[in-house]
Amino acid sequence: MSHQTPATHRPLTTALAEAAAMAGHAPSVHNSQPWRWRVLPDALELRVVRDPQLAATDPQGELITLSCGAALHHVRLALAAEGWAATAQRLPDRARPELLARLTELRFTGVDPDSMRMVQCMQVRHTDRRPVSDEPVGDEHLTAITEATTREGARLEILDRDQVLQLAAAASHAATVEADDSQLRAELDYWTSRTGGVGLSPQVLPEQPPQTTVPGRDFRHPGTLPVGPGHDQAASYGVLYGDEDTATSWLRAGEALSAAWLAATRLGLSMVPLSGVVEVPGTRQILRQVLSGMGHPFLALRIGVSDPDHAGPAHTPRLAREQVVDISTVDGDA
Protein backbone atom coordinates (compact mmCIF):
# COMPACT_ATOMS: atom_id res chain seq x y z
CA MET A 1 0.00 0.00 0.00
CA SER A 2 1.29 3.50 -0.84
CA HIS A 3 2.21 5.97 1.85
CA GLN A 4 -0.48 8.64 2.26
CA THR A 5 -0.06 12.37 2.75
CA PRO A 6 -1.72 13.17 6.10
CA ALA A 7 -3.03 16.52 4.85
CA THR A 8 -4.51 15.44 1.54
CA HIS A 9 -4.51 11.62 1.59
CA ARG A 10 -2.74 11.62 -1.75
CA PRO A 11 -0.37 8.74 -2.43
CA LEU A 12 3.31 9.48 -1.84
CA THR A 13 4.03 8.30 -5.37
CA THR A 14 1.83 11.08 -6.74
CA ALA A 15 3.79 13.66 -4.76
CA LEU A 16 7.06 12.18 -6.03
CA ALA A 17 5.93 12.19 -9.66
CA GLU A 18 4.68 15.77 -9.46
CA ALA A 19 7.89 16.97 -7.79
CA ALA A 20 9.96 15.25 -10.49
CA ALA A 21 7.90 16.99 -13.17
CA MET A 22 8.39 20.35 -11.42
CA ALA A 23 12.16 19.74 -11.43
CA GLY A 24 11.97 20.02 -15.21
CA HIS A 25 12.19 23.81 -14.72
CA ALA A 26 15.84 23.46 -13.65
CA PRO A 27 18.61 25.02 -15.78
CA SER A 28 20.89 22.74 -17.79
CA VAL A 29 23.81 22.99 -20.20
CA HIS A 30 22.40 24.01 -23.62
CA ASN A 31 18.94 23.23 -22.17
CA SER A 32 19.72 19.54 -22.69
CA GLN A 33 17.69 18.46 -19.60
CA PRO A 34 19.86 15.36 -19.02
CA TRP A 35 17.91 14.04 -16.02
CA ARG A 36 15.53 11.12 -15.80
CA TRP A 37 13.45 10.29 -12.74
CA ARG A 38 12.16 6.89 -11.63
CA VAL A 39 9.33 6.87 -9.10
CA LEU A 40 9.39 3.93 -6.69
CA PRO A 41 6.75 3.10 -4.07
CA ASP A 42 8.79 4.79 -1.33
CA ALA A 43 11.69 6.52 -3.10
CA LEU A 44 12.70 8.64 -6.09
CA GLU A 45 15.76 7.96 -8.22
CA LEU A 46 17.68 10.42 -10.40
CA ARG A 47 19.61 9.16 -13.42
CA VAL A 48 21.72 11.02 -15.94
CA VAL A 49 21.46 10.72 -19.72
CA ARG A 50 24.82 11.20 -21.42
CA ASP A 51 23.98 12.74 -24.79
CA PRO A 52 26.64 12.15 -27.46
CA GLN A 53 25.94 15.68 -28.70
CA LEU A 54 27.74 17.02 -25.62
CA ALA A 55 30.89 14.94 -26.04
CA ALA A 56 33.06 17.87 -27.14
CA THR A 57 31.53 20.50 -24.84
CA ASP A 58 31.49 18.30 -21.75
CA PRO A 59 33.72 15.24 -22.31
CA GLN A 60 33.88 14.28 -18.63
CA GLY A 61 30.17 14.76 -18.04
CA GLU A 62 30.79 17.41 -15.40
CA LEU A 63 28.31 20.01 -16.68
CA ILE A 64 25.53 17.48 -17.17
CA THR A 65 26.16 16.24 -13.63
CA LEU A 66 25.92 19.85 -12.44
CA SER A 67 22.68 20.22 -14.43
CA CYS A 68 21.25 17.14 -12.72
CA GLY A 69 22.27 18.60 -9.37
CA ALA A 70 20.15 21.66 -10.13
CA ALA A 71 17.21 19.37 -10.85
CA LEU A 72 17.87 17.49 -7.60
CA HIS A 73 17.64 20.72 -5.61
CA HIS A 74 14.46 21.64 -7.48
CA VAL A 75 12.84 18.32 -6.62
CA ARG A 76 13.81 18.62 -2.96
CA LEU A 77 12.16 22.03 -2.79
CA ALA A 78 9.07 20.82 -4.63
CA LEU A 79 8.67 17.98 -2.14
CA ALA A 80 9.19 20.32 0.83
CA ALA A 81 6.55 22.64 -0.60
CA GLU A 82 4.13 19.71 -0.39
CA GLY A 83 5.24 18.87 3.14
CA TRP A 84 7.69 16.04 2.43
CA ALA A 85 11.22 15.78 3.82
CA ALA A 86 13.63 13.24 2.35
CA THR A 87 17.14 11.93 2.78
CA ALA A 88 19.28 12.44 -0.32
CA GLN A 89 21.78 9.69 -1.12
CA ARG A 90 24.21 11.04 -3.71
CA LEU A 91 25.91 8.55 -6.06
CA PRO A 92 24.57 5.66 -3.97
CA ASP A 93 25.80 2.76 -6.15
CA ARG A 94 29.32 2.66 -7.61
CA ALA A 95 28.26 -0.14 -9.95
CA ARG A 96 25.68 2.19 -11.53
CA PRO A 97 27.39 5.54 -12.20
CA GLU A 98 24.32 6.77 -14.14
CA LEU A 99 22.36 6.66 -10.84
CA LEU A 100 23.22 10.07 -9.42
CA ALA A 101 20.91 10.23 -6.42
CA ARG A 102 18.16 8.49 -4.54
CA LEU A 103 15.67 10.24 -2.26
CA THR A 104 14.59 7.93 0.55
CA GLU A 105 13.12 7.99 4.07
CA LEU A 106 10.24 10.17 2.90
CA ARG A 107 8.36 11.61 5.85
CA PHE A 108 5.58 14.16 6.07
CA THR A 109 6.72 17.12 8.17
CA GLY A 110 4.21 19.77 7.12
CA VAL A 111 4.10 22.24 4.25
CA ASP A 112 7.08 24.61 4.15
CA PRO A 113 5.96 28.13 3.11
CA ASP A 114 9.50 29.19 2.16
CA SER A 115 9.82 26.22 -0.19
CA MET A 116 6.45 27.12 -1.69
CA ARG A 117 7.83 30.56 -2.57
CA MET A 118 10.92 28.93 -4.09
CA VAL A 119 8.70 26.73 -6.26
CA GLN A 120 7.07 29.90 -7.56
CA CYS A 121 10.54 31.21 -8.37
CA MET A 122 11.31 28.01 -10.30
CA GLN A 123 8.45 28.74 -12.64
CA VAL A 124 9.56 32.30 -13.45
CA ARG A 125 13.35 31.82 -13.40
CA HIS A 126 14.97 32.25 -16.80
CA THR A 127 18.27 33.17 -18.44
CA ASP A 128 18.44 36.72 -19.77
CA ARG A 129 21.70 37.27 -21.66
CA ARG A 130 21.02 40.96 -22.35
CA PRO A 131 22.82 43.75 -20.46
CA VAL A 132 21.48 44.46 -16.98
CA SER A 133 20.49 47.88 -15.63
CA ASP A 134 22.88 50.54 -14.34
CA GLU A 135 21.83 49.81 -10.75
CA PRO A 136 24.49 47.85 -8.85
CA VAL A 137 23.59 44.74 -6.87
CA GLY A 138 23.37 45.50 -3.16
CA ASP A 139 25.87 43.87 -0.82
CA GLU A 140 23.04 42.40 1.23
CA HIS A 141 21.70 40.65 -1.87
CA LEU A 142 25.10 39.26 -2.78
CA THR A 143 25.43 38.00 0.79
CA ALA A 144 22.04 36.27 0.58
CA ILE A 145 23.01 34.54 -2.67
CA THR A 146 26.39 33.52 -1.28
CA GLU A 147 24.80 32.08 1.85
CA ALA A 148 22.28 30.12 -0.23
CA THR A 149 25.21 28.63 -2.14
CA THR A 150 27.09 27.66 1.01
CA ARG A 151 24.08 25.87 2.47
CA GLU A 152 24.15 23.48 -0.48
CA GLY A 153 27.77 22.46 -0.12
CA ALA A 154 29.62 24.79 -2.50
CA ARG A 155 30.96 28.34 -2.31
CA LEU A 156 30.65 31.52 -4.31
CA GLU A 157 33.51 34.00 -4.61
CA ILE A 158 32.29 37.47 -5.56
CA LEU A 159 35.03 38.99 -7.69
CA ASP A 160 36.67 42.37 -7.27
CA ARG A 161 37.45 44.61 -10.23
CA ASP A 162 40.86 43.10 -10.97
CA GLN A 163 39.46 39.58 -10.75
CA VAL A 164 36.63 40.53 -13.14
CA LEU A 165 39.23 41.66 -15.67
CA GLN A 166 40.99 38.30 -15.29
CA LEU A 167 37.67 36.55 -15.85
CA ALA A 168 37.00 38.70 -18.92
CA ALA A 169 40.35 37.77 -20.44
CA ALA A 170 39.76 34.09 -19.70
CA ALA A 171 36.26 34.17 -21.20
CA SER A 172 37.54 35.90 -24.32
CA HIS A 173 40.28 33.32 -24.77
CA ALA A 174 37.86 30.44 -24.19
CA ALA A 175 35.54 31.87 -26.86
CA THR A 176 38.44 32.00 -29.33
CA VAL A 177 39.46 28.41 -28.59
CA GLU A 178 35.90 27.12 -28.94
CA ALA A 179 35.31 29.07 -32.17
CA ASP A 180 38.28 27.24 -33.71
CA ASP A 181 36.99 23.77 -32.69
CA SER A 182 34.80 22.23 -35.39
CA GLN A 183 33.27 19.65 -33.02
CA LEU A 184 32.25 22.33 -30.54
CA ARG A 185 30.78 24.44 -33.32
CA ALA A 186 28.79 21.45 -34.59
CA GLU A 187 27.42 20.77 -31.11
CA LEU A 188 26.41 24.37 -30.65
CA ASP A 189 24.65 24.33 -34.01
CA TYR A 190 22.84 21.17 -32.92
CA TRP A 191 21.54 22.64 -29.66
CA THR A 192 20.48 25.93 -31.26
CA SER A 193 18.50 24.21 -34.01
CA ARG A 194 16.67 21.57 -31.97
CA THR A 195 12.91 21.24 -31.64
CA GLY A 196 10.86 18.98 -29.43
CA GLY A 197 11.43 20.38 -25.95
CA VAL A 198 15.21 20.78 -25.70
CA GLY A 199 17.87 23.18 -26.94
CA LEU A 200 17.97 26.95 -27.20
CA SER A 201 15.28 28.57 -29.32
CA PRO A 202 15.93 31.82 -31.27
CA GLN A 203 13.61 33.67 -28.85
CA VAL A 204 16.12 33.32 -25.98
CA LEU A 205 19.23 34.22 -28.00
CA PRO A 206 20.27 37.87 -28.53
CA GLU A 207 19.81 39.28 -32.03
CA GLN A 208 23.32 40.73 -31.75
CA PRO A 209 26.21 40.36 -29.27
CA PRO A 210 25.45 42.51 -26.21
CA GLN A 211 27.97 44.98 -24.83
CA THR A 212 29.56 43.22 -21.87
CA THR A 213 32.65 43.38 -19.70
CA VAL A 214 32.87 39.59 -19.63
CA PRO A 215 31.93 38.15 -23.02
CA GLY A 216 29.20 35.54 -23.05
CA ARG A 217 29.02 32.57 -25.37
CA ASP A 218 29.07 33.26 -29.09
CA PHE A 219 26.13 31.25 -30.45
CA ARG A 220 27.42 31.79 -34.02
CA HIS A 221 24.12 32.94 -35.42
CA PRO A 222 21.74 35.63 -34.17
CA GLY A 223 18.54 34.95 -32.30
CA THR A 224 15.46 37.13 -32.22
CA LEU A 225 15.76 38.59 -28.71
CA PRO A 226 16.19 42.39 -28.98
CA VAL A 227 19.23 43.56 -27.06
CA GLY A 228 18.71 47.31 -26.93
CA PRO A 229 21.24 49.77 -25.47
CA GLY A 230 23.18 49.25 -22.30
CA HIS A 231 26.20 47.55 -20.80
CA ASP A 232 26.74 45.21 -17.88
CA GLN A 233 29.17 47.53 -16.08
CA ALA A 234 26.99 47.51 -12.96
CA ALA A 235 26.84 43.71 -12.85
CA SER A 236 28.63 41.63 -10.25
CA TYR A 237 30.54 38.49 -11.15
CA GLY A 238 31.30 35.42 -9.12
CA VAL A 239 32.88 31.99 -9.38
CA LEU A 240 31.05 28.95 -8.04
CA TYR A 241 33.64 26.55 -6.64
CA GLY A 242 34.31 23.72 -4.21
CA ASP A 243 37.12 21.95 -2.40
CA GLU A 244 37.12 18.86 -4.61
CA ASP A 245 36.82 17.97 -8.29
CA THR A 246 34.68 14.82 -8.02
CA ALA A 247 31.35 13.68 -9.44
CA THR A 248 29.72 14.28 -6.05
CA SER A 249 31.19 17.79 -5.95
CA TRP A 250 29.75 18.62 -9.38
CA LEU A 251 26.37 17.27 -8.31
CA ARG A 252 26.44 19.41 -5.15
CA ALA A 253 27.57 22.36 -7.27
CA GLY A 254 24.38 22.00 -9.30
CA GLU A 255 22.31 22.04 -6.13
CA ALA A 256 24.17 25.16 -5.04
CA LEU A 257 23.63 26.80 -8.44
CA SER A 258 19.90 26.15 -8.15
CA ALA A 259 19.81 27.61 -4.64
CA ALA A 260 21.77 30.70 -5.71
CA TRP A 261 19.69 31.28 -8.84
CA LEU A 262 16.38 30.91 -7.05
CA ALA A 263 17.58 33.26 -4.30
CA ALA A 264 18.51 35.78 -7.01
CA THR A 265 15.15 35.35 -8.71
CA ARG A 266 13.36 35.94 -5.42
CA LEU A 267 15.33 39.17 -5.01
CA GLY A 268 14.43 40.34 -8.51
CA LEU A 269 17.93 39.78 -9.87
CA SER A 270 19.17 38.32 -13.14
CA MET A 271 21.73 35.51 -13.15
CA VAL A 272 23.60 34.15 -16.17
CA PRO A 273 25.97 31.15 -15.98
CA LEU A 274 29.20 31.43 -17.97
CA SER A 275 30.37 27.89 -18.58
CA GLY A 276 32.77 28.52 -21.46
CA VAL A 277 35.63 29.33 -19.10
CA VAL A 278 35.40 25.88 -17.46
CA GLU A 279 34.93 24.01 -20.74
CA VAL A 280 38.47 24.93 -21.88
CA PRO A 281 41.19 23.41 -19.65
CA GLY A 282 43.53 26.39 -19.95
CA THR A 283 40.94 28.96 -18.90
CA ARG A 284 39.65 26.70 -16.14
CA GLN A 285 43.17 26.87 -14.73
CA ILE A 286 43.02 30.66 -14.93
CA LEU A 287 39.87 30.54 -12.81
CA ARG A 288 41.79 28.52 -10.24
CA GLN A 289 44.36 31.31 -10.19
CA VAL A 290 41.56 33.85 -9.72
CA LEU A 291 40.60 31.81 -6.66
CA SER A 292 44.26 31.86 -5.54
CA GLY A 293 44.33 28.09 -5.94
CA MET A 294 41.90 27.71 -3.04
CA GLY A 295 39.31 25.59 -4.86
CA HIS A 296 38.06 23.93 -8.04
CA PRO A 297 35.87 26.18 -10.23
CA PHE A 298 32.54 24.89 -11.52
CA LEU A 299 31.03 27.95 -13.20
CA ALA A 300 31.36 31.70 -13.50
CA LEU A 301 28.19 33.71 -12.89
CA ARG A 302 26.97 37.17 -13.86
CA ILE A 303 24.56 38.73 -11.36
CA GLY A 304 22.73 41.98 -12.04
CA VAL A 305 19.58 44.00 -11.61
CA SER A 306 17.29 43.39 -14.57
CA ASP A 307 16.67 46.36 -16.81
CA PRO A 308 13.06 47.45 -16.05
CA ASP A 309 12.62 48.55 -19.68
CA HIS A 310 13.17 45.01 -20.93
CA ALA A 311 10.43 42.44 -20.69
CA GLY A 312 11.79 39.01 -19.78
CA PRO A 313 12.70 36.72 -22.68
CA ALA A 314 10.69 33.63 -23.50
CA HIS A 315 11.32 30.52 -21.45
CA THR A 316 13.32 27.75 -23.07
CA PRO A 317 11.27 24.70 -24.14
CA ARG A 318 10.88 21.75 -21.80
CA LEU A 319 10.55 18.01 -22.34
CA ALA A 320 7.14 16.52 -21.66
CA ARG A 321 6.61 14.96 -18.25
CA GLU A 322 6.35 11.43 -19.63
CA GLN A 323 9.76 11.82 -21.26
CA VAL A 324 11.56 12.44 -17.97
CA VAL A 325 9.43 10.81 -15.25
CA ASP A 326 9.09 7.02 -15.17
CA ILE A 327 6.14 5.85 -13.08
CA SER A 328 5.98 2.33 -14.55
CA THR A 329 6.77 0.64 -11.24
CA VAL A 330 3.86 2.36 -9.48
CA ASP A 331 1.55 3.08 -12.40
CA GLY A 332 -1.44 1.87 -10.50
CA ASP A 333 -0.93 4.45 -7.72
CA ALA A 334 0.45 7.53 -9.46
Rank of each mutant, 00 (worst) to 15 (best):
D139Q: 14
D128N: 14
E207W: 00
V198S: 05
D128M: 06
D139P: 04
R129I: 06
R130D: 09
V177T: 15
G197E: 08
L142K: 10
T109P: 00
P210V: 05
P229Y: 04
E152W: 11
T150W: 11
L159F: 13
A168N: 08
G197M: 15
T224K: 10
Q233I: 06
Q123I: 00
G242S: 12
S201Y: 01
E244N: 09
E187T: 00
E207G: 13
D232V: 13
A234M: 12
P215S: 12
P226N: 13
E140Q: 13
S182L: 13
G153S: 06
W191E: 01
R194C: 09
S193N: 14
V164P: 02
E105W: 01
A171Y: 04
S182R: 13
L165E: 12
D180E: 13
M116P: 00
E147R: 14
A169T: 14
W191P: 01
C121Y: 00
A179I: 02
H231I: 03
A179Q: 09
Y190P: 02
T213G: 01
S236K: 13
Q208N: 08
V119Y: 03
P206D: 05
E178G: 07
D162F: 12
M116A: 14
L106W: 05
G230K: 06
D232F: 03
G197Q: 10
D189I: 01
E244C: 02
V198K: 01
S182N: 08
W191C: 01
D181I: 04
R161G: 03
M118N: 06
P131T: 09
T212D: 09
P136S: 13
R194K: 08
A179F: 00
L184M: 09
V119A: 05
A235V: 12
E244W: 08
Y241G: 03
A175C: 06
D181Q: 06
M118P: 00
D114P: 00
D245H: 13
T150I: 11
I158L: 15
T192A: 00
R125W: 07
I145S: 05
P210G: 02
R217A: 15
M122S: 12
G242W: 08
Q211V: 14
S182A: 15
G138Y: 03
G216R: 11
T192M: 05
S201W: 09
G238D: 12
G110A: 02
T150C: 00
F108V: 06
L142P: 05
Q233N: 14
T192E: 02
L142R: 14
G223W: 09
V124T: 15
T149H: 00
Q163T: 12
T212V: 12
G242P: 04
V227R: 04
D189V: 03
G138P: 02
L106S: 01
D134I: 03
E207A: 15
E140K: 12
V177W: 01
E105K: 08
D114Q: 12
R194V: 07
L167G: 05
L225Q: 15
Q203M: 06
H221Y: 11
A154S: 15
Q120F: 02
E140I: 11
Y190T: 02
R161M: 11
V111F: 02
Q208D: 07
P215C: 14
